[in-house]
């Protein structure tokens, strides 16, 4: 991998340079406690240290609400919305969110079943990663999502003089080569800084355990009373799934226009925590009770992404950080890992 250095004094200029490659979205502080990806207007507003954004970058590729197609009700003409997706840049993406995008790719760009809307946006996007310092909810290390070797164009790591950059794609190389005045070769000191930072970062993760057997732990604890107990506290609001970087359920509905000349099919994000997620015509509900839906999320998040040999959960901690009921995802998993199935 190619390494290069961006000095502190060149950082804002670097953000300006990124604008040449498309509209830049970067982490901004949006309230006292929360951060989110917003369009960059002033590089001074861009935040480089943040625990997590409210919304993962999935919103740029799999939009919360979109029109899939339109059908003429008289002539049955079929058309998809004309989209002119311009190249864009997402700056400041943490490793776990990059992993999250790769997991979404495995679903939405599954060979032979690529979804055009998603694929077009994915190909227009330039991803600039940034190293994160974990807070108490971040367990991406035990999910092997604390570090990525691919899925980005550039990746920034803080060092004393500014940033050490890893280059991850041909576009990344072009940015470095076309703007060589901004970048410098790395010194041995830079590399030591980088290693030192990573060491400190690794020690900051609150959890160190193996989740290799978590799938089995969930299965053998299918009837553990904790599911009922925690599901009682759950409000069923769906925050955990909306903010999850790999949750991707959607709902569709048809809407005719007022003149009844055409009808559009829309889609919006859906959540497995909602009562109607498994409800079919005739009244049968395949996950009727809240506990069924609650437990399903834990099983689904911990199931295999077959294409990547990893779990769907990347350990970003959003479902815990943004749960209005204060339910701890890892709290439940660690409880199950230690729980006895048989009470003596």
């Amino acid at each position: 991998m190619r390494y290069t250095k961006l000095r502190k004094e060149n950082f804002h200029e670097f953000l300006r340079v990124l604008e040449r490659y498309g509209k830049v979205y970067a982490p901004h502080r949006i309230s006292e406690k929360f951060y989110d990806f917003r369009e960059m207007r002033d590089p001074n507003d861009v935040v480089t240290e943040y625990p997590r954004t409210v919304m993962p970058p999935k919103k740029f590729f799999f939009e919360p609400l979109s029109e899939l197609f339109k059908v003429g009700l008289r002539d049955f003409s079929y058309s998809t919305p004309e989209e002119d997706i311009q190249p864009f840049v997402i700056f400041g993406v943490h490793a776990y969110d990059i992993k999250g995008l790769m997991i979404l790719d495995s679903v939405y760009m599954e060979p032979g079943l690529e979804e055009k809307q998603y694929a077009v946006r994915r190909q227009k996007a330039l991803i600039v990663g940034i190293s994160d310092m974990p807070d108490q909810y971040n367990f991406s290390n035990v999910r092997n999502a604390d570090w990525v070797d691919e899925g980005f164009d550039l990746f920034l790591h803080p060092i004393e003089e500014g940033w050490l950059i890893r280059v991850g794609s041909p576009t990344g190389h072009k940015i470095i080569d076309d703007n060589s005045q901004l970048f410098h070769g790395t010194t041995l000191k830079d590399i030591d800084d980088f290693k030192e930072h990573e060491k400190r970062r690794q020690l900051s993760f609150p959890m160190c355990m193996s989740l290799s057997d978590v799938r089995y732990v969930l299965e053998v604890n299918w009837n553990n009373p904790i599911w009922e107990e925690e599901a009682k506290r759950c409000l069923g609001c769906g925050n955990c799934t909306m903010t999850c970087p790999t949750c991707r359920c959607y709902e569709v509905w048809d809407e005719p226009d007022v003149e009844l000349s055409s009808a559009s099919r829309f889609r919006r994000w859906d959540s497995c925590q909602f009562h109607d997620h498994g409800l079919v015509a005739g009244g049968e509900n395949f996950r009727e009770h809240k506990v069924d839906r609650f437990r399903h999320r834990y099983n689904c998040k911990n199931s295999y992404v077959k294409a990547l040999h990893c779990d769907f959960c990347v350990g970003c901690g959003r479902c815990t950080a943004f749960c209005p009921a204060g339910i701890s995802y890892m709290g439940i998993i660690t409880h199950l890992m230690e729980a006895k199935v048989h009470e003596d």
Binding site: V107, R215, C249, Y250, D270, L279
Partner: peptide, 19 residues
């Protein structure tokens, strides 16, 4: 199951356990 897409995207028909 409830199905909306038929192509393994919408998630409604997902069933089973973690393994």
């Amino acid at each position: 199951r409830r199905m909306k897409c038929g192509v393994g995207k919408c998630g409604h028909c997902v069933a089973g356990t973690a393994t």
